[in-house]
Simulated scan of single mutants.
Amino acid sequence: MRTVLDFSSLHRSSIGFDRMFELLETAASTTPADNWPPFDSIKVADDQYRITMAVAGFGRDDLQITLQNNVLTVSGERKADHVGEILHRGIANRPFTRRFELAEHMQIDGASLKDGLLVIDLKRELPEALKPRRIPIGNPDQPATEPRRLQNQAA
């Protein structure tokens, strides 16, 4: 069963949200991904987030974290390190790739691996141009700028 999302009413009343609508349509149309390895996503503070992945058996050299075009990709592949004949394999040893779509201005603050948990800290850093700023209110008796004259005539 496929549900088609119609965002036409939102397109009429909003400007500049095209990317968000594309993300929603993509999320609705993708097939459910594999649930391995399990992970938690946590909001630590207003602009700080953390992703914790259970990657038991993977070492630092087996994992790769990349960030490109607002997509955080975590992948892992273990090298064969067993000696002897395997009678039962209960510990997952398969390669994996997890992708996370990040909001704009998200930066990786750091990553660590301890006790089989990969922890990736993220932080939103808005550029100065996007931060709120206070606009001074001018005096109505004193115009802020000189009126423009059109073709040597008063405007």
Rank of each mutant, 00 (worst) to 15 (best):
D18E: 14
G138K: 13
V44C: 08
E101D: 12
T3M: 09
F17Y: 13
G84T: 02
M1V: 03
L118P: 00
K123N: 11
L72F: 04
D61L: 09
I91R: 13
E25P: 05
P127D: 01
M20C: 03
D61S: 13
L67P: 00
Q64H: 11
V83G: 05
E125D: 12
V4P: 03
T26C: 05
D81E: 12
I91S: 14
N69W: 06
R12I: 02
L102E: 00
V119C: 03
E128S: 12
D18A: 04
P38E: 11
D121M: 01
F39V: 01
A33G: 08
Q151S: 08
L24T: 02
R2D: 03
E104P: 10
E146C: 07
M20K: 08
V119Q: 06
Q142F: 04
T73R: 14
R94A: 13
D109E: 15
T73Q: 15
E85R: 12
Q68N: 08
R148K: 10
I15R: 13
F7A: 02
L24Q: 11
D109R: 15
P140H: 05
L126T: 01
Q48W: 04
R12M: 07
V71L: 13
E77R: 14
A92Q: 15
L23P: 01
G16Y: 03
G57F: 06
L63V: 00
Q64W: 05
A144E: 11
G138I: 06
I108L: 15
A92L: 10
R2A: 10
E25S: 11
V4D: 07
S13Q: 15
R98P: 02
T66Y: 06
T66K: 13
A28E: 07
A80V: 02
Q151Y: 14
E101K: 15
E101I: 12
R124V: 06
S75V: 01
M106D: 00
E101N: 14
V4T: 04
D46T: 06
A27D: 10
D115F: 14
P143H: 09
I86E: 15
L67N: 01
I108R: 07
A27I: 03
A80Q: 09
D47F: 12
A28H: 07
A54K: 15
F58P: 00
F100V: 01
F58T: 00
K114F: 04
